[in-house]
Amino acid sequence: MERKVAEEVKRDRIPEHLVTKILLKTPIKSILRFRCVSQSWNSLITLPYFIKEHLANAKPLILRTENPVVSLSLLPDSEGLDRSSQIEFHRPHSFEIVASCNGVVLLRGRYREFDGSWRLILWNPSIKKTLYLPSPRSCASTVTTLLGLGYDPKSDDYKVPRIVRLGNSAEHPFVFQFFSLNSGSWSENVDFFSNSLENKDALRSIFISYYDNQAMVNGVIHWLFKS
């Protein structure tokens, strides 16, 4: 019956730019399914413009940890909790949520399989995709590590900045590294701090307290330092 109605509609197609507006109001799960509708729908849905617009219209999400499970809940004004977005990847035996940005979450998990070493994981719960990052240089030897996750609108890229002190004492230099999602690899800037901080003496005494203290203000990552 309903199908008949739908076929009757066939004569009057909706032009594509209006279809875009409809799909911007459609939830992610449906949109991923509708990539199959046709080639033109698939290209429309995977356009960076469309993804950004859809994100801009998205409802805020609350991330909750109930170790060892991370679950994602919609804000209370929408209907109920969505428990279906629990982590569906190879679960590390312990992990922390490091940061999140635009619905993408950075996790740090410890795997027995990798000699108990840490792996960084980017997780997009809305599309249920995960990406294991390659290990950065001097991953194991360092004591202090600061990690974050940000979006760079200039290069349309997600980046994981990491600040490490290459040793135990205040004399050891800080190294700034960042992972670029577009390139899939880490870059590094040894002089970053000496070039960008005015008070170099203050730098010596900086103590990076913990890694999950990122705050995003107007799209810029801020960290809290103790000195």
């Binding site: 309903e2 199908r3 739908a6 076929e7 509609v9 066939k10 004569r11 009057d12 197609r13 909706i14 209006l18 279809v19 507006k21 409809i22 799909l23 911007l24 109001k25 459609t26 939830p27 449906s30 399914r33 509708f34 199959c36 509708v37 046709s38 080639q39 729908w41």
Partner: peptide, 27 residues
């Protein structure tokens, strides 16, 4: 109207949506 159509297709199959919009499968 856009919201109403979005609500109507939200839980529908790919085949239903093709039929709804009069789209031929070209995959």
């Amino acid at each position: 109207l856009n919201q109403a159509v979005a609500d109507r297709i939200e839980n529908k199959s790919v085949e239903y949506v093709r039929s709804f919009f009069g789209i031929d499968n070209d995959f």
